[in-house]
């Protein structure tokens, strides 16, 4: 009899431990640079659908998003960059929310006290976040180089840019000047087509240069020149991770389908905030498949997101 009781107690204990090993959260959706650290492993990437156990920590990067589902089914979003303890998030989920009856009461009170829709004109200073104007460059520099604002340069690969050709002279040549951020000349080249590939800068270390400043001017028309465009070196802490992921990713891409390869690379770059490289890939893509509507539509959508004007 005693042995039976001991066996039952042991069985109950084992069951309790087994049932207690369920997850705290699962990842519903993830975007950006999000990491997880568990009790048995160091920081690593988070995958959608993965289970997160109690005692773990998560880190949400800048401009990143993490959607979590608690073991109870409740959901929460983590959008603010930072490091979070899973146990703290779990407590937050369990204490949030109110009943239907109390929500109804709050809803009625809010509307009865006029807290629903304020007159924005009476509080105009709180409601002036948008303008009716657009940004324009000065009129002196007529040559536009098609580069997204605040472009970061990861490397000289997939770093191809172009500019609007001289409307007065279709056969014009251009002088491309590339300086570093200390305004020391890296290269000056004359090209006959309205584009330039930074891959031609062999042996250049972008980190050493701290970035590049590009200027293009017409060889024949003194009045047709560009402003200086800066490409800052990408020096974020996750640079090595991105380089490593990029190299690994390139090995998985279809080598025969150049267009698809560039399309996927464009998305990879854009997702990592490297719009200059994304644009370079889109440009190559359109050269390869100018008639493809999907690619054209994707390019136009990208142009809008990157704040460029579509041609």
């Amino acid at each position: 009899m005693n042995k039976l009781i001991i066996k039952v107690v042991l069985l109950l204990l084992v069951s309790a431990v087994a049932f207690g090993q369920g997850f705290e959260f699962k990842v519903l959706a993830s975007r950006g640079d999000n990491k997880i650290k568990t009790s048995s492993a160091d920081w690593g990437p988070i995958k959608t659908g993965s289970a997160i156990m109690g005692g773990s920590q998560i880190e949400v990067g800048g401009s990143s998003y993490l959607g979590l589902m608690h073991k109870t089914g409740k959901t929460m979003e983590v959008k603010t960059p930072g490091t979070y303890s899973i146990d703290d998030l779990s407590k937050k989920v369990m204490t949030g929310g109110s009943s239907v009856a109390s929500k109804y009461g709050e809803y009625l009170l809010a509307h009865m006290s006029g807290g629903g829709d304020e007159d924005i004109n009476q509080e105009k200073l709180n409601n002036m976040n948008v303008t009716g104007a657009v940004s324009r460059a000065t009129d002196n520099e007529k040559l536009d180089i098609i580069i997204p604002d605040r472009s970061m340069l990861l490397s000289t690969s997939d770093a191809f840019f172009r500019w609007i050709p001289n409307p007065e002279n279709e056969k014009d040549s251009y002088v491309v000047t590339v300086n570093n951020l200390l305004e020391e000349n890296v290269t000056t080249q004359t090209v006959s087509e309205p584009y330039f590939d930074l891959e031609s800068l062999e042996g250049i270390s972008i980190e050493d240069q701290m970035g590049l400043i590009i200027n293009v001017k017409s060889k024949t028309d003194e009045g047709y020149f560009s402003a200086n465009y800066a490409l800052q070196a990408f020096m974020e802490p996750n640079k090595e991770t991105i380089m490593s992921e990029l190299n690994e990713y390139k090995t998985t891409l279809p080598s025969e389908e150049e267009a698809m390869k560039n399309f996927l690379l464009a998305m990879f770059y854009e997702q990592n905030g490297l719009n200059f490289h994304a644009l370079s890939c889109y440009t190559k893509l359109l050269v390869l498949e100018p008639e493809n509507e999907y690619y054209a539509a994707s390019y136009l959508d990208f142009v809008k997101r990157a704040g460029l004007e579509a041609e």
């Binding site: 699962k26 990842v27 519903l28 959706a29 993830s30 975007r31 990437p45 995958k47 959608t48 659908g49 993965s50 289970a51 998003y65 959607g67 589902m69 959901t75 979003e77 992921e245 990713y249 996927l264 998305m267 990879f268 997702q271």
Partner: peptide, 28 residues
């Protein structure tokens, strides 16, 4: 019940998540 994608109540995979297979194998 809710939305998909960001801020949703369904497991959601974006284009890059699929191509980089950035999801738990048991999800599918």
């Amino acid at each position: 019940r809710g939305y998909g994608g960001l801020g949703g109540r369904f497991f959601s995979l974006d284009v890059m998540d699929v191509f980089t297979e950035n999801f738990d194998p048991g999800l599918i």
